[in-house]
Nucleic acid binder design. Structure first.
Lengths: 336, 336
DNA sequence: ACCCGCGCAGAAACCGGTTGCTGGGTGAGA
DNA sequence: TCTCACCCAGCAACCGGTTTCTGCGCGGGT
C-alpha cells in the first residue's frame, strides 16, 4: 500500500485505499447515506481521522452543482446602512449553513452589472442591495437566472423577491411630526439622486405637501454622509426654513454638529430630523429625532426570501418595511 | 447536431460541439493559451456568444485547485473597526481579482476555530481579524496550511504574516497628552478583557505610569460600545479622576453624550479621550480628542501580505501600524 | 433443495473545466 | 522529390467528489 504523501491534503481516494473500501463507500459514510455495514463504517472513520481527511468543498461544489454560498453586492461597504444589511444577511445565512461572498461596487453604476454577474457565477444566489444600475442592466442581471433578491430597489415585477424600506412612509411620518409642531417651511437635504430610496423619499414629501395645506418643502441635493450635513449648514441657515429633513441620520448628525459649533440652538432656531435611527442617533446633542429603520431586518428578510427560493418555496410577495417615529430632542415647535 | 437545451446553462462541451472543435480548443481560446488558428478561434467565439457561454467557476476552481477567494473572519460585523478592515481588504482584494468570503463569529471564541477552518476550506487563504480563540486553537488553525494573515492578534512566530495596530503606542500618546495637561489621576475604561488589543492598551498604560511620576491609572472593564460608555458615566463621576481614556471612540462618545446630558462640562470638569478616530469623532460635542487609527489600512495591508503569500513572495515581517494624536476639544487642563 | 428477494458495496459515469501528450498536416531545406 | 521539423488540434487523463446501476451474497419461504 502506497502511503499518501502527507504534505498533500488527503483525498477521498486516500481514505478509501487506507480503509480498503471504494470511494463510494467513503462518500456514503461521510454523508450518512443509505446503510453501510457498521464495521466498514468504523474502518472508514478511523481512516478519516488518521489522515485528517476533510472533503474538498470545491469538488463537492462541482459534483452537487451548488456552493452553499450567496453573493451580497453593495454600493459602498463604508455606508452603515449596507453594513447593517450585510450583518443581518450574514448571520441569517450562517444559521442555515450558507456563507456570504461580499462585493463592493464602490458606487460605480457601470461596473455594478459586471460585478453582480461575476459574483453570481460562483454562488447559488444573489442579494443586490440598492443597486445603482439602470432598469435595463438590472433586467439583464435578473435574466442570468438563479435566485435573486433585491433590497431597497423596488421593481414592478412581483416575481423577483424584494425587500424594501418604505422611505415614502418614513418621510411622511417626519413631515407629519413637523406639521404638528407648526412647521410650514421645510428643507429636504437629499441623497444620491440616482438612488431608488431617494426617489421614494421625494414621493413621500410630495404626499406630505398635499396633506398639509401651506407646507412648502424646498430641496437640496447634498449626499448621504456626515460631511455632507456639515457642509450644508450655512446654506440651511440662510434659507427661511424652520425645519430640516435630512436624507439620513448621517447627514442630520453632521448638520447638528456644525450648528452646535455655530452656536445655533436646536430645536429653538431650527428643527432637524433624520431617517434610520442608527445607534449614534441617541448620542448626539441634542438627541436626534428620527425614524427607526430596522436595517438588519432588511438583510435577514432578504436572506429568507433567497433561502426560500433556493429551497423551492413559492415566490414571496414583495415586502415593505415600515419604521416608526422616534421623538427625541432635535425637533420642537416652529420658531415663528 | 443536438441542440443544447437552452434552459440549462451552456457548458464548454456545448460550445465545442457547436463550433465543431474539441473542448480543449475552446478552453485554449477562453484562456488565450498557446496559438489557435484565427479562423477556429473566431468560430469558437461566435459559438460562445451564440450560446451565452460563461465558464463554470466551480469547475475551474476544481481543475485549477484555486478559488480566487479569501475568507475574512471577524468577531462582530457590527463593530465599526471590523467593518473598516473588511472594507479595506475587500477593495484591495478586488483590485487583484480576488473575492472575499466573510464570516462573523459573533464573538463566540469556541465556534471561532470551526468557523475559520470551514471558511478556509472553500478559500485560498484566510484573514483572521482579532481572533478571540486561545493560542492553542490558533495554532491548530495555522497548522491547517494555506496562507493566513493575522490582524490585530500578534503572535510570537514571525513566519505568519501579521498586521497589528500598535495600541500600546497609541495609549502612550494619549497618556502623554494628558500628562502634559497636568492630569495625574486617570481612569481607563477597558474593552473585552480577552482581546489582544486590550492587553496592548494595558501595557501602554503601564509604560505611561512608569514614564510619568505620580500618575495613577485606575481601570474599569466596561466593553467597547456606545452604551458601555453611557452606562459608566456615573461611575466615572464618582471617581476622583480628572481624565478618562476610553477603550475606543465608541465608548468615549457614549460617555460624552451622557456627561452632556448631566450638564457636566467637558473638558473643564473632566477630560475624555478615545482611540480610533472614527468619522463620528469629529462630530461630537465637544469634538473628541483621539488617536488616528488607519483601520482600512489594516485591511489593505493584511490583503497585501496574503496576496504576497499566494503569489509565492517571501514571508513578510510582522507590521505594526502607529497612529497619531488628534487634538480636538474634549481634553483640557486638569481641573484641580 | 431450490428459488426469489433484498441489502450492501463497488464499478463506472458524471459534474465542467484544464493540460500533457500525440499524431497529422504543412512548409522548408537538401 | 523526399525528409525532417514544427505547429496546431484533439484525445484522454485528471481535479475530488456524488450517484446510478449492477452484482454478489445471504436469508427466508415453499
Amino acid at each position: 500500500m502506497t502511503l499518501p504523501d502527507s504534505s498533500r491534503p488527503a483525498t477521498i481516494a486516500d481514505v478509501a485505499r487506507t480503509a480498503g473500501v471504494s470511494r463510494a463507500t467513503v462518500s456514503r459514510v461521510v454523508n450518512r447515506h443509505a446503510t453501510v455495514d457498521p464495521r466498514l463504517a468504523e474502518r472508514v472513520r478511523t481512516a478519516m481521522s488518521d489522515l485528517a481527511y476533510r472533503p474538498s468543498e470545491t469538488a463537492r461544489n462541482l459534483s452537487l452543482g451548488r456552493t452553499n454560498t450567496v453573493a451580497v453586492v453593495v454600493p459602498d461597504l463604508g455606508n452603515p446602512m449596507f453594513q447593517a444589511i450585510l450583518q443581518g444577511a450574514t448571520r441569517a445565512a450562517a444559521a442555515d449553513g450558507y456563507q456570504i461572498l461580499v462585493a463592493d461596487t464602490q458606487e460605480d453604476a457601470d461596473a455594478e452589472m459586471r460585478i453582480a454577474i461575476d459574483a453570481r457565477r460562483r454562488c447559488d444566489a444573489l442579494l443586490l442591495c440598492a443597486p445603482r444600475m439602470d432598469d435595463d442592466d438590472l433586467a439583464t442581471v435578473l435574466r442570468q437566472g438563479g435566485p435573486v433578491a433585491l433590497v431597497n430597489r423596488p421593481v414592478p415585477e412581483t416575481a423577483v423577491p424584494q425587500v424594501s424600506m418604505d422611505y415614502r412612509h418614513a418621510v411622511g411620518l417626519v413631515a407629519d411630526h413637523l406639521a404638528e409642531l407648526g412647521h410650514r417651511r421645510i428643507l429636504y437635504l437629499g441623497g444620491p439622486i440616482a438612488s431608488a430610496s431617494n426617489r421614494l423619499r421625494l414621493a413621500g414629501l410630495d404626499d406630505a405637501a398635499r396633506r398639509h395645506a401651506g407646507m412648502v418643502i424646498d430641496r437640496r441635493e447634498v449626499g448621504w454622509s456626515l460631511d455632507a450635513g456639515w457642509d450644508v449648514a450655512d446654506d440651511v441657515l440662510s434659507s427661511d426654513a424652520t425645519a430640516v429633513i435630512a436624507f439620513n441620520d448621517l447627514v442630520a448628525i453632521g448638520l447638528l454638529s456644525r450648528l452646535d459649533d455655530l452656536g445655533v440652538p436646536v430645536p429653538q432656531r431650527i428643527s432637524v430630523v433624520g431617517v434610520d435611527d442608527i445607534p449614534f442617533a441617541r448620542f448626539t446633542r441634542p438627541h436626534l429625532t428620527t425614524v427607526s429603520v430596522p436595517q438588519d431586518r432588511l438583510g435577514t428578510l432578504a436572506w429568507e426570501h433567497v433561502h426560500g427560493a433556493l429551497t423551492g418555496a413559492p415566490a414571496a410577495e414583495p415586502v415593505w418595511l415600515r419604521g416608526e417615529l422616534v421623538r427625541r430632542h432635535s425637533t420642537g415647535p416652529a420658531s415663528t
